[in-house]
Structures are given as structure tokens and as C-alpha cells.
Design a protein around this nucleic acid. Sequence first.
DNA 1: TTGAAAGCGCTAACAG
DNA 2: CTGTTAGCGCTTTCAA
Lengths: 343, 343
Amino acid sequence: MEPPAQPRRVTIVDVARHAQVSTTAVSKVLRNAYGTSPKMRAKVRQAIAELGYRPFAAARGMRGRTYTIGVMLPDIRNPFFPEILDGLTEALDETDYQVLMGPGCNGEAAEARVTEAMIDRGMDGLVLIAPVSPRSHLEQVAGTVPTVVVGRHGQSAVYDTVSDDDIAGATLVVDHLVGLGHRRIAHIEHAETDPARMREMPNALRAEGFRLSMRAHGLADDVVSTTYTQEGGYLGAKKLLTRAERPTAVFAGADIVAMGVLEALDEARVSVPGDISVVGYDNTTFAALGPISLTSVDQAGRHIGAEAARLLLARLTDRGKPSAQVKLTPSLVARRTTAPPPA
Amino acid sequence: MEPPAQPRRVTIVDVARHAQVSTTAVSKVLRNAYGTSPKMRAKVRQAIAELGYRPFAAARGMRGRTYTIGVMLPDIRNPFFPEILDGLTEALDETDYQVLMGPGCNGEAAEARVTEAMIDRGMDGLVLIAPVSPRSHLEQVAGTVPTVVVGRHGQSAVYDTVSDDDIAGATLVVDHLVGLGHRRIAHIEHAETDPARMREMPNALRAEGFRLSMRAHGLADDVVSTTYTQEGGYLGAKKLLTRAERPTAVFAGADIVAMGVLEALDEARVSVPGDISVVGYDNTTFAALGPISLTSVDQAGRHIGAEAARLLLARLTDRGKPSAQVKLTPSLVARRTTAPPPA
DNA sequence: TTGAAAGCGCTAACAG
DNA sequence: CTGTTAGCGCTTTCAA
């Protein structure tokens, strides 16, 4: 008795017939395009509601836009990204655009695959979060579809960028620790070898900011090179503990690194912050967790996301607009892993 | 001198002309369809490579499939989901399908919006992770596009399900604690009022498993109702600490809840696991973090994701196939938050 | 085994 | 302001 499960999708033709107008009229109402009388709009809107019509985005994409924005994020596990996404979706909520995310990619090959997949699906705009691909690839992507690059410095004429001032962030950390009385401060960095990326990747800038700031205070800049992983932090801390003169504070380049540091210090029965203070970066969710309570640098992820959305919408409206670079200022959140050095 | 930035996309027509064959032939080769000679395939493949052709998925979707699978996840912040995603993408890596994720949705309205957006974009199949929408909506979605529901019990004739045995997981926890000598064990649950969801949502089953298991051991089942949030854990623990007879162990329904518990215990100067043992659920990344080292239940997220991919691919091949329910078995990971009760 | 031709649902020129 | 018409890039009958 029941109709079969798939009663054919309602199309623009059905709506046009039901409203006694042309398909063009329906299309125009859908897009709030110029040249529709209020009366017609009302008729069409009613027909749409009565039939429960929803435009088929894939078909729209063949001529116009798909109303889809793709977000590429390198690592879904990084607790910093959800904040960016929140800001992004919130800003896009009012619009007709829908956000779809590519699954975590690591490395250039995966990034290329995801960006291509998004372009092939006719996405109207792309937001690339902390991409590692060479600049040339980013520019090629941006040449095909409006693009905003987030969390990577270095400007381009074809894409907009939104990033947080990592130099300033590192300076905040050093100032905080020096203010507490620390003199021997070590930094654990994510080693960057590619000279092109040196100037663009946040990790490189944090290390650079640390060096500059320490020197400005007339202090020696002690940097240990590992990676931005928990293990990297663990190994880095182990190395620091063998120093003849141990540092009294460790600035980990990312919260996840700080976790490894805390683990190593715990193992070595070094008290935090009694013996050694620890600072992270990113102010991730777990930094705020009671048992951890890590002092960290907050990047205002929501704002970053909101700015990215704003820039993308602007470029969607005017593809030829000059590229913009937005730089936001981080802030330091002091918690229980930092204190004055032992007397 | 250079051609303009947008030199028109290479289409199937270009490939056909370059290979001196019809567009039909190219299409067939693309889809490994029946009726192409090896010689023709070779010619077409070469032309594709020489021109750097990539099919435009949006256009394919108009007649056939988009080779896109949509994954809806409720909360990108939940560190359990990345595991599922990894299993999913890994299993799909070999295929022509691309995974795209909807942004975190909370609540039925957001879920409906995302599922509709995915359907409107012609996605070939959907994976819904821990959806909260009523069954009727899930079945409606599944009636439109092949669907696999993950992390929610209760079978349906139209969609497949993959879930972890939450009753068994709760039993593992109780057995572990009882084995250590605990008798007064409390559980912090996420309150579920909707009777329909009672039988389907993991949180309800964990509480149920706890009750059953405690009674099987001849012990009283002490359950505190809050929510699966850090704050819920904090408040739940506060409440437990006011008990005349404090429990010697707390089973938090999720790792994030355990974080709140640890914070409350820390504040109250209650030692873990000296005075009170704490167990979480999900074995999230931060459970393993050195400073936390939380005993937790592991759901084998990768397997869940891999199973979901397998079922979806099967249904993509044969839409009429009978629905399947896959239930996986969890395991307990003992860490440093559990120990025998104080003497 | 191969190809010509007819759409899929929608938008964009262009006429009226 | 409204409607007619011709595609977008691909898949799919259906003949050859």
C-alpha cells in the first residue's frame, strides 16, 4: 500500500508546476536573485514548503555554486582545531553555506588528495588549517578555488591568511617566566629543516620568538629539538634533566609536548612547579583539566575561525579582491604549573 | 604571456578526443564497467594521465554516484571519535570513495541539518556516529541513502549498526574493582529520560550493565545521575563525597567525566588511588597521558570504523541486502588510578 | 565492443 | 518582471 521507499526527489520542476511559474522563477527565488516580484516570491516559497523541496546541491554545482565550504584539518586529534571550527561554523550558520571537513591528513600527499577531492566536488571555497604542503601547491589550489589558509604565516597574493602571532606568544611565555624570577629557561621545539617553511610554520616562529625574547632579557636561549608530540616532550625533558645545570622552567612548544614533559618530570620525581615550571602552547581543552592545570598560551581559536569565514565569504563575493593577512594576538593563561623558581 | 589562472577544467570530452574514442568509452574505463577492450583501456588511461584528468564528482553525481561518503559526528572534541575515523578512512583508502565529515552537531536539529546537507550533496552513503535523533528520523535517512549507525544499539531493518558491548564494558569495570577488593562502588551516569533511547544509548547501557554486575556480585548499586561532561563528573563526585559512607571506587561513564571526578577529589584532598579508585570509559588519548594515567575501557574504535566501512561498502553494492548488527567487545586498560581500597 | 544521443537538476543568457 | 532555451560534465540507454 505504502509508496516505495524512494518516491523520487522533488525537483525544481515540481515546484514550478505546483506554483504555476517557470523553473527560472523558482531558481531566482532560491538564490534571492534580482528580478522577482513579492507576489511571485510568496507563491514559490509556499510551493517549496508544501512540497518539502530542497535544492540538489550537486546539480546546482554544475552551473553555479554548491554552497559548500571545505575545511581541511591536518589532525583531528589536535584539540586546538575544534575551536577554529566552532568559530567558522558559527559565522557560516547564518548563510546558505554548509561546512564539510576532510579527514585528518598528515603530509603533503594526503593534503593534496583532500584538496583535490574537495575541488572535484565543486566546493565553493576552502579553508586550509595549518597545511604543510609547499607554497606552490597552496597557490595552485587557491588559483582554482577561493582559499583561506589558517595557522601558517607568510603571505600570498592569491589566498588570504589568518594566523596567531606566534612570536608574540613566545614572548608572553618568556616574560611570564622571567617575571616569576626564572633565568634558566629551556624551550622544546618541533625541528624545522625546510628553509621555506622556517618562515611560515608556527613552530619555527615560536622558537624564534623564544630566542629573540630570551636575548632581549640578556639570557641564554636553550633550545632542544624534538617534535610536537607527547613523546617528543618526554624525550626533550629527559635530555634537559641530564644537563649539568638544569633549567628551572620549560617552555613546551605545544600542550601535547608539555604532557610528555610532565610525565618525564613525574618519573624523575621532579616536582612541578616546585622544582621546575612548565608552560604549554595552544590552551587545549586538557590544559584546563583539573589534574593537569597547565599554564598555556591561548590562540583565540574561535576568532581565528570567524575571521577565516569572513575572509572567505568576502572572496566568494569578489574573487578579485586583494588578499588579506589577519594576525591575531594570543594571551597567556597562567595556571598551576608555573611558580617562582626554587630559592 | 601565461594563460589565465583558470584554463578551464579538463573534461571527459577532452580525454575522449585526445584518445580518439567516444566519451562513453572514457566513462566506462573510469568506472571499470563492462565492455571495454584492453587496448581501449590502455589508450584511455594514457590520455587521462597525459592530460591530468580528474572526473568532476559533482557532475558524476547527477547520473551515477559521487564517490563520497559522509560521516556525521556529534562532537569533534570527543577524543574517541578520531579512532573510529581512522578505521573508516583506512578501510576506504583502497577504494574510490572519499570521506567528508559534517561539523560537530549537538541535538536533533543540527543532526537533521547535517544529514540533509549530505543527502542534498548526493553522497553515496552515510555513517552516523552516536546520533541522538529519534529512530524515525534515522530510518528516513536510511531510506534515502545507504546508512550505517555507529555507537548506538537497537537494530533496524533499513540501516546497519556497529556498536561496542557497553553492558560488557561496565561488567569489566565492576569485575576489575571487585577483584581489587572494592565493595562500595559508585557510578556516575549521563541521565537518560527518553524511554525509547534508554535501550539504545550507550550511556544508558553502561549504567544498566553496572547495576546488573553489582547485583551479580551481591553489592549495592550506587548511581549518581549527571551528564557526560567534566562538570558533570565534578558535581557527581562532590555529591559522592557528602555520602555518610563514601565509596572506595568511582566508575565514571566516560573519561571526560573522570576528569571532573579527579578534579573534585584533588580539591577535597582525597588521594587517588590511595583513598578512592577512579575508572573512566573510552580510553581516550588523554586517559593515557602521563600525569593522568586513567584506568579506562577501550572500545577498539579502529575496528568499529573498519566494520562500519565494510558494511557500508556492502550495502553500496547491494542496497537490498538484509541489515546487519555488529557488536564488538571492549577491553579494560588498567592504569594508575585504580588500586586496592584503603585497609 | 563501440558510439550517438538523451537526459540528471539546476542556472544563466536572452527574449518577450 | 517573467519565461524559453541551451547547456554544465557525466552516465546510460540503445543501436550499430
